[in-house]
Design a protein around this nucleic acid. Structure first.
Lengths: 122, 122
DNA sequence: TGGTTGCATAACTGAATGGTAATGTACAAG
DNA sequence: CTTGTACATTACCATTCAGTTATGCAACCA
């Protein structure tokens, strides 16, 4: 587990963002996260949907775990993984700083559409 | 420029998310984006803050451009870059699907804090 | 015209990434 | 106690990545 901190405003280190975004930059790992969002799953369950071998999935799980995006527990021989949302929240916080940028973009699009509309209604 | 689409609801391809998250998984590229969020900048302006050579920055710019995160224009010998927010909006949309996850997490933290508080006020 | 500025491109290098097959290991079940 | 299941680990390979130096090229400037 991560060291405890009180506030939700602990800003992520650069290395943490590197790891998080790096982990998300792969479709297999995003699919694994999507699966884990519905609840914990064993390695073989996580392997089943893919054409890859089990060691390949284990590698992906290692990447996700090092980024703090999943954690490992134990159930007999099984090592179920659980999604950990905090790094996702941090990535989201980082992106939020650019929100007004893309919202301004939509504003431009809106006014373009308005303009087009006014051209059809003279 | 990207092919035009009316709605803001065009969902990104897997490859697009790969490129976007991959581009964001590097501190130099995130710093470049942060700079460009304040307005367009030439390559030499973008190179100045770093200890890297200019070709290294040009490589990073190529990664950002292939991900659609920046665009290139022309001003005499200069090739100023402009930030393009759409891929950031798409990445944000992807993350939003997990929002309830980390909000639930904060809820747990809140109740933990409540519990601790109630222990100090018997 | 000839030099300088601004940037791109090419060729190279070391390290990291993403996959494989083969093997090792802990636990459970007969 | 032996066997099977679930997973990790190792060794290996091809590809990509992040940086370098060297070079090319277009546009401005004296």
């Amino acid at each position: 587990m991560q060291p405890f901190s009180y506030a939700s405003s602990n800003q992520p280190s650069s290395a943490q963002l590197d790891a998080t975004f790096g982990a998300l930059a792969d479709p297999t790992r995003r699919a694994i996260l999507a699966r884990l969002a519905t609840g914990p799953a064993s390695v073989s369950e996580l392997t089943a949907p893919f054409q890859m071998t089990q060691p390949a999935i284990s590698k992906h799980l290692r990447v996700l775990e090092k980024a703090g995006l999943i954690s490992r527990s134990q159930d007999a021989q099984r090592r179920p993984r659980t999604i950990e949302a905090q790094p996702l929240a941090q990535a989201n916080e980082w992106l939020e700083r650019y929100r007004e940028l893309w919202e301004a973009r939509y504003q431009q699009l809106d006014s373009l559409l308005d303009e087009m509309k006014s051209m059809r209604t003279p």
